[in-house]
Design a protein around this nucleic acid. Structure first.
Length: 213
DNA sequence: TAGGCCATCTGGTCCT
DNA sequence: AGGACCAGATGGCCTA
């Protein structure tokens, strides 16, 4: 895939022309300037193209038709690419927005601590698990000691939420879970070493087998 | 300065 | 055909 290297050069070139599309600053979702960019593109707004000649690039009246169509095809291709880039950017922005929304409902300490993407996902996973577990236990407790089986006691030896939150050794993933992974940023397995360090960054998760997320 | 995280670009693949 | 999704590559910013 040496393509990349080659592709990037021209791409960088384009960037200069595209009004800082690939700007370093977390670009605020460029609305729908796609059209404009394309048009600018298609219209030959790319200044650097002139590199090829002092021969007056434009108005190439005498340009062979084949050359012109090739040029047009190139332009169309480029235009589509830009459009796709724009869509991809928006898609990622949406994804990030969803991730932010998820962060908002996850408790962190300090409050403004920002979880990374991977931390957010892992923590959400554990958080849901813990809440589920809490509900389950609460429900069981309500049935009374001699009520249903296992009242007040975690069924089949599954860990209590409390233990999971505080760094118990159990995995958040129920044993019956399809997950073979021990996801645990904040939880169980991972934090065995320091449950009290939840704050802020949550205990680092142990290395996960691929495909765990 | 190395390493982590992130945004963006890009080409490929799948889906409608 | 065009859009959505994905994964790899690249470069910038930040922190230990």
């Amino acid at each position: 895939m040496l393509v990349k290297a080659e592709v990037l050069a021209p791409a960088a070139e384009d960037e200069l022309l595209l009004l800082g599309l690939g700007s370093p600053a977390p670009s605020p979702s460029l609305p729908s300037s796609a059209e404009e960019e394309e048009e600018e593109e298609a219209a030959g707004g790319r200044g650097l193209r002139r590199a090829e000649g002092k021969r007056r690039p434009g108005r190439s009246r005498g340009a062979p038709r084949a050359a012109r169509t090739a040029e047009t095809a190139q332009r169309i291709k480029r235009s589509r690419r830009l459009k796709a880039n724009n869509r991809e950017r928006n898609r990622m922005h949406n994804l990030n927005a969803a991730l932010d929304a998820l962060r908002d409902v996850l408790p962190t300490f300090p409050e403004d601590a920002k979880l990374t993407k991977i931390e957010t996902l892992r923590f959400a996973h554990n958080y849901i698990w813990a809440l589920t577990e809490t509900l389950r236990l609460a429900g069981a407790a309500r049935l009374g000691p001699d009520g249903a089986a296992g009242a007040g006691v975690p069924a089949e030896g599954s860990p209590s939420p409390a233990s999971s939150w505080s760094g118990g050794a159990a995995s958040p993933a129920p044993s019956a879970s399809p997950y073979a992974c021990t996801l645990s940023p904040a939880s169980p397995a991972g934090s065995a070493s320091d449950p009290e360090h939840w704050p802020g960054r949550f205990a680092p998760a142990p290395p996960l087998p691929r495909r765990c997320l």
